[in-house]
């Protein structure tokens, strides 16, 4: 199926959020995930099924202080 991850189109076989994170080589404990603007709790990563056309956002912490993170990048 085709989904959008962090703004990029992606073809994936992953059926749920946990599988997608594994596919992307992302440690689940270090990130937060949104599917179609709804936050998915870490405990629900495996239960959260992905569907064609879903928009997924995966975020983590980066260096930043007071407006430290560069939003434009």
């Amino acid at each position: 199926m085709k989904i959008k991850v962090n703004g990029e189109d992606k073809e994936t076989q992953s059926e749920n959020v946990l599988q997608l994170l594994k596919e992307l080589d992302i440690v689940p404990e270090r990130v937060a995930v949104e599917v179609n603007l709804g936050i998915i709790k870490r405990a629900d990563f495996e239960n959260c099924k992905l569907h064609d056309g879903d928009t997924v956002e995966i975020v983590y912490f980066v260096g930043g202080g007071i407006y430290g993170g560069q939003i434009s990048n």
Partner: peptide, 8 residues
Amino acid sequence: VAVRRVNI
């Protein structure tokens, strides 16, 4: 820290 997209 800031919250940003993971570069996939």
